[in-house]
């Protein structure tokens, strides 16, 4: 592979704009229609798997804004999930504010945290590994703080009483979660698709490729990186609300922990960071893989198998497909077209 190990994390290829080709546009439309109709024929287990696929694709897409397009490798995105989830859960239980609004408040608070991390990281010029560590450190600080605040449930966490009331973001029918998760995924993808073609998205890609050159050309790289971080953390915070109300429980270790951050970034990386469809493709590859290994090997103590598989995939992607699966797939398809 000529552009194998030596090339960048994310694509240096000219942007693949599938939406600009009518055939692909129809294909995307058809895919959405199929996904809309799918729950009618799926078993309830399959619905669960699809919910997870959509949800992780959504989180991956949110991460993609700052991690993929802007090339700022954040490994602390779990912090935003946690802040969003806890905010909505507390607002709902203490102030009886519906999570439909709490979700936005949670997203906003997550965005504030994102802005703080971004401000410190970008203002002090932390790059590469140092930025990674900064994000990890902030997520860990949040996790430790929340584990120690009794009002937030401490280390045990919070539980949400199930009422089955849609106004409380709770549904009797799992298929409702399916549609909410699908909507979230499409929403985030829509946002990214909009950003991608504007000046904002183009600047982000330029920052990723050569930040120094951008600055030399007068691009306010700080401003655009901050914006990317804020958009990304807002969306991730919204996702946190879904996570909390889908699981009915919030625990500091699972909402703020490093393993969740890894789950968030691995899908867009495998699928193709900095591409519109990469996170979705990555989630369609990895989520069922995880579920499958969990299902087929059951509870017989083979709990870590899917993570071994994730690790192998991650290593393989880094070595052989550093741009991720989607750009590769797109190239193959285009070659066939021609």
């Amino acid at each position: 592979m000529p552009n194998g190990a030596g090339s960048r994390l994310v694509s240096g290829h000219p942007p693949i704009a599938p939406a600009s080709r009518p055939a692909l546009q129809y294909l995307a439309l058809a895919a959405v229609l199929v996904l809309l109709a799918l729950p009618a024929v799926l078993t309830s287990y399959a619905v669960t798997v699809f919910i997870l696929i959509f949800f992780y694709a959504f989180l991956g897409q949110a991460w993609n804004v700052v991690g993929g397009y802007a090339g700022q490798l954040s490994m602390g995105h779990a912090a935003f999930v946690g802040v969003g989830g806890y905010t909505a859960a507390m607002l709902s239980s203490e102030l009886h504010l519906t999570p439909w609004l709490g979700m936005l408040v949670g997203g906003a608070l997550a965005a504030v945290l994102g802005a703080v991390i971004g401000y410190l990281g970008f203002r002090f010029g932390l790059r590469g590994f140092y930025f990674v560590l900064l994000t990890v450190a902030f997520a860990e600080v949040c996790r430790i703080l929340v584990s120690n605040i009794d009002a937030l449930g401490g280390a045990i966490g919070l539980y949400i009483t199930f009422t089955g009331d849609p106004r409380q973001f709770q549904f009797q029918d799992a298929r409702a979660y399916y549609y909410v998760a699908l909507a979230l995924m499409l929403l985030a993808t829509g946002v990214v698709a909009l950003l991608e073609r504007r000046r904002f998205g183009i600047y982000l890609g330029a920052i990723r490729e050569d930040e120094g050159a951008c600055e030399a050309l007068g691009v306010d790289t700080f401003k655009y990186k901050m914006l990317a971080m804020i958009v990304s953390s807002f969306l991730t915070g919204v996702g946190g609300t879904f996570y909390a109300f889908y699981l009915f429980s919030l625990q500091p270790n699972s909402m703020f922990g490093i393993p969740l951050s890894v789950e968030i970034i691995i899908r867009p990386i495998v699928g193709g960071a900095g591409t519109l469809l990469g996170p979705i493709l990555g989630s369609f590859i990895l989520t069922p893989l995880g579920e499958l290994s969990r299902l087929s090997l059951g509870h017989g103590g083979y709990h870590g198998l899917h993570l071994v598989a994730y690790g192998v995939l991650l290593v393989a992607v880094v070595l052989f497909l550093p741009q991720g699966a989607y750009p590769y797939l797109a190239r193959v398809l285009r070659r066939r077209d021609a």
Binding site: R8, L9, L73, G128, L314
Partner: peptide
Amino acid sequence: DAPHEMQILLMLG
């Protein structure tokens, strides 16, 4: 010779 991000991800794997 790859950027740091790639190495971080590799080691994460």
